[in-house]
């Protein structure tokens, strides 16, 4: 479930990055790259799980909790990195 959530987040953030590409201060590339990388990593995990003969995608309450926390974690990381990068740009300007 969290693989699908990360995939949706990567697509949405990628679309937002494209739409707001001129507003560089938003640093939406951080969000897109983070969720894109997580999607790719979970895709590998899904392939290995399927190769072992187990169910690759599960929809348990714990999976929902993980999906929620990973989205929140990704958003927090984006805010933190964007804050740092914007401050660094202000200092060098």
């Amino acid at each position: 479930m969290y693989f699908l959530t990360a995939l949706v987040c990567a697509l949405v953030s990628g679309l937002l990055w494209f739409l707001f590409r001129k507003r560089t201060q938003l640093h939406l590339e951080v969000l897109t790259i983070t969720f894109g990388a997580a999607t790719l990593m979970w895709l590998v995990d899904v392939i290995y799980t399927a190769a072992e003969g187990e169910a690759p995608l599960t929809f348990t309450p714990l999976d929902g909790q993980i999906a929620l926390f990973t989205v929140l974690g990704g958003l927090f990381l984006w805010l933190l990195v964007a804050f740092i990068l914007n401050n660094r740009e202000k200092k060098t300007a």
């Binding site: 951080v30 790259i33 983070t34 990388a37 790719l40 714990l62 993980i66 926390f69 990973t70």
Partner: peptide, 21 residues
């Protein structure tokens, strides 16, 4: 820098998953 961001970002998100597991 983009590669570093992808590796750190992906690892951080997966670390949350592993923590909850």
């Amino acid at each position: 820098g983009y590669l570093e961001m992808a590796l750190w970002g992906g690892s951080a998100v997966l670390a949350i998953e592993h923590l909850l597991h």
